[in-house]
Write a protein that binds this DNA or RNA. Structure first.
Lengths: 84, 84
DNA sequence: TTGATATATTGATGAATATCGATGAAGACC
DNA sequence: GGTCTTCATCGATATTCATCAATATATCAA
């Protein structure tokens, strides 16, 4: 659905995550934990919400997990805000 | 804030309201009540959420209230989904 | 195998939210 | 004035959500 994707952005922490991902291609989870002032499980929870919404995807390389935006999903949201 | 505007869209009913407003310039509250299958106070509540978020504004003409989108606010959301 | 580090999941709790019925406020019409 | 219609607000309730502590999983190194 569309609202479930907007719902994934209905939180300051998750907007901050998406902003960082829009700026840099890939971001490590550890960077989010360092940058946002929240416990690690909380960050992990927010990343899961964004993953479940299809807005981001993750790849694991060694011990680290890297997240990036899913451009089509972001485009879909942009489109929903346009007339038509 | 930005997330509070996304939060205003984090509900199917409110996405439907915004969709209708994007299609027609102005929509009467009574039309929302007729179209969406919810009680009138519930519609009124959702319209207030959108008003508080600055996404829509209302004008009263006689007994009826007409709602329309605030283009700048919608543009701000679109912009937040773009890089930069 | 043992230990250390990086993420994810689970469980609990307090706060926020969607919904409705009842009520209030304000205009239109007799 | 009195009544009807339209919309907003209030009060109550059930559900959802953000957060953390504790624990689990996974990878690497020694």
């Amino acid at each position: 659905m569309l609202a479930s994707r907007f719902k994934a952005l209905a939180d300051p922490t998750r907007v901050a995550i998406v902003n960082r991902l829009a700026a840099a291609d890939e971001v490590c989870v550890c960077d989010f934990v360092a940058a946002l002032d929240l416990a690690q499980p909380t960050i992990s929870h927010h990343l899961k919400v964004l993953r479940d919404a299809g807005l981001v995807e993750a790849s694991r390389r060694g011990t680290w997990a890297y997240y990036r935006l899913v451009p089509e999903a972001v485009d879909a949201l942009r489109g929903a805000l346009s007339a038509g």
